[in-house]
Every structure is written in structure tokens, then in C-alpha cells.
């Protein structure tokens, strides 16, 4: 069978954003109390670096942790609960921490990793180690 095509209203330039439920982390429990969710990410690669953008709404900059060990990148963020004086009447999403791991295929220059948090989006720039950068090999004729 063919794939489902999402229909958008005719005349609209941009598609409407579809609801996607948060993915609960079910692997190993984190150290912070409460549920964990996998942040949605964009990852792209250029000749010099990998860039990872992760959606971590509700997290403060000081509660973000990134760790790179043996090419395993771990991104986690602690999220404060809603003040208990607010009694939930209706909930469509759960509030929780974020945790996701990525196996990197590239050698990263650890010392040059930079992170920036803006409006709930974490941007990690992971510069490639010199050895991993593409090199143009001169072909010499015989």
C-alpha cells in the first residue's frame, strides 16, 4: 500500500504542526526523580562539525548536561516540576526531564564543543577532530 500523505489546507504556505507525543525514556533510569523523555533533535554535519539541536522546553541552562565518552554522546536536562500549588485539571502532556544518547561516527574535538540554550532549544556544536576532517588527496599520475 502507498504511504499516508498528510493533507494540508489548500492555500496555506506552511503546513500545520502535527501533534507528536513525547517519547518516554524506558531504558535505564536517570538519577533525577520523575519521568524522562527523549528530546526531539535535528543533527546535521558539515565538513568541520556536527551540529545537534535538541528541543528541551522547560530546562534552564545550568541544568543541562552533555557528556562525550568513547564516541557516546549523552545529552540530559533537568526540568523543574510545576509548582504544586497548581492543581492539574487537565493534562495533555507530561512534564519531565530529558535524556538521549547518540553514538557518533566521527572523531570530535572534545575541547572545542560548545553549547547554547535559547528558548528551549539546545544547540551543540561538535567540531571534528583534525584527523577526521576530509582531506583532499592529491592524485599523482605515474
Amino acid at each position: 500500500m502507498g504511504t499516508q500523505v498528510q493533507k494540508t489546507e489548500a492555500g496555506t504556505q506552511n503546513p500545520e504542526i502535527q501533534v507528536r507525543e513525547k517519547q518516554a525514556v524506558t531504558r535505564e533510569p536517570g538519577t533525577w526523580e520523575g519521568p524522562y523523555f527523549e528530546p526531539r533533535v535535528d543533527i546535521y554535519e558539515t565538513a568541520d562539525a556536527l551540529t545537534l539541536m535538541a528541543e528541551v522546553p522547560g530546562a534552564e541552562a545550568e541544568d543541562l548536561q552533555t557528556d562525550l565518552k568513547d564516541n557516546l554522546l549523552t545529552v540530559s536536562a533537568k526540568v523543574a516540576r510545576v509548582d504544586p500549588r497548581w492543581k492539574p485539571l487537565y493534562e495533555e502532556y507530561s512534564v519531565g526531564h530529558y535524556l538521549r544518547q547518540f553514538r557518533l561516527g566521527e572523531q570530535i574535538d572534545q575541547a572545542k564543543i560548545s553549547a547554547n540554550l535559547k528558548d528551549g532549544v539546545l544547540t551543540l556544536t561538535l567540531p571534528k577532530a583534525a584527523a577526521a576532517k576530509p582531506r583532499r588527496i592529491k592524485v599523482t599520475g605515474g
Binding site: 500545520e16 502535527q18 501533534v19 528541543e55 485539571l89 487537565y90 502532556y93 512534564v95 528558548d119 532549544v121
Partner: peptide, 22 residues
Amino acid sequence: VFPPVNLYDDGSVFLVRTEIPG
């Protein structure tokens, strides 16, 4: 419908909360 919302109440104020990063 995006975005999912949560509704809270503290007795005198309703709080509508939604996550729309970026």
C-alpha cells in the same frame, strides 16, 4: 491539535501551559 496544553488551577487563577520551543 498542536500544541498540547495543560490546564492548572490554584483556586483563583487558571494556568494554561504549553511547550513550544524555538
